[in-house]
Simulated assay, not measured.
Amino acid sequence: MNRQYLFDHYPNVVVTSECFKLHDEIISQIDEGEILVRNHYLSLDPYMRGRMSKAKNYAAGQELNTVMQGGTVGEVVESKHADFKVGDTVICTGGWQLYYRTAPTMDSNHVRKIDVSRIPMSVYLGAAGMPGITAWYGLNKIIKPQSGETLVVSAASGAVGSVVGQLAKQKGCRVIGIAGGPEKCEYVVETLGFDDCIDYKAYPDAETLSHELRQLAPNGVDAYYENVGGYIMDAVLDNLNAFARVAICGLIAGYDGRAIPISNPRAILVARASITGFIISDHMDIWPQALAELAEAVAKGVLIFRESVSVGLESAPDAFIGLLQGHNFGKQLVKLI
């Protein structure tokens, strides 16, 4: 018997638990070329909110009455596929459910074997998974930081931002994080090794946040890794140096449906800034290299990670809603077994 969450109806601005419906199904015998995966961990990510909408998006929206999409790691428990055997650990797009039945193909990227001999399998959904690879790509391929430059990253304690800052420090940058609350800011500086961190909750508008950033970066900002948007982005844009680079991988401030306009686009012109939005699924060619480097860094202890773990599939809706409200600390996961 498989238990799963279906997408039941579109949010009315704010996501609620009523958007999801529990469903049980009997798993039939798998066919030739198929595998059955018992999911151990489910990844919850902000991008899911963007797909719970009829609005134009970079990927097809989540269809009603279908299993909620999401990355998982788990164990192959049945196999009729030559390349997979029972007991293999895999990362896949298993969704909000206990079991995932699929037919991997030669050119498929939705099921990959992973090595869990040196790092926990859950890390392949965080620092050594899609969030970490997103951080790696935006930093190395878009920002291309140079030693001595000042880099700012929003959502600095989160799954993406925490990796961005650590990798940038390893490249010799001065790194300033932006996070919500004293506890997260302390973690970003004391544990992750950022140079400074601004608690945006203490600065309720772009003007006050911009002023604080200017005190910490009197020589300006050379690069910005954007995860949030809203007035936080306005504050950083106001401090950009000439020819600064900005990578945008998320705009969580607008995931509840609110408009998040840039209030001072002139700052982009004044700085002659390059702003690039990207979606990591467009760059599957770099995944093997990035995944290998990130997994090795975690195994060696030079890439630190933190997880927020809720227990049981039934906890997924509340954990997801909490993620959108910034209640998580580090990568948000659901433990399914």
Rank of each mutant, 00 (worst) to 15 (best):
S79A: 04
L216S: 02
A223C: 10
S147I: 05
G138W: 10
G138I: 02
Y100D: 11
W96S: 08
G148R: 10
L313W: 06
E190N: 12
E226H: 10
D318P: 00
A242C: 14
V164I: 09
V189T: 10
S79Y: 06
G74L: 09
G193Y: 06
G312C: 02
M68S: 05
L64A: 11
V153K: 03
L294N: 06
M68V: 07
T150Q: 09
K141D: 11
K113W: 09
Q4M: 12
A259I: 04
G33M: 02
M52P: 01
L240G: 02
E18M: 12
R101W: 03
L98H: 12
M121W: 09
K144N: 12
G50K: 03
Q4W: 10
S28G: 03
R112W: 13
E296N: 12
I268H: 14
R174Y: 08
Q29I: 00
T150A: 09
A295Y: 14
L36S: 05
T72S: 07
G220N: 03
L139R: 13
V309D: 12
D8Q: 14
C249F: 06
S263R: 11
M121L: 15
L42G: 02
T105M: 11
D115M: 07
C19G: 06
E78P: 04
D88E: 06
H23E: 13
D318Q: 14
E307T: 01
N57S: 13
K144Y: 15
L6S: 07
T66D: 09
L209G: 06
Q166F: 09
E63Q: 09
S43V: 09
V116D: 01
V298W: 01
H23N: 15
S117K: 08
V160Y: 07
Q146T: 15
G301L: 12
V73R: 13
L336G: 11
G50W: 05
F305K: 14
A253Y: 07
V76A: 01
L36T: 02
R306Y: 05
L323P: 00
S308W: 08
Q69D: 13
R258I: 05
I279T: 13
I114H: 15
A55T: 04
I304E: 00
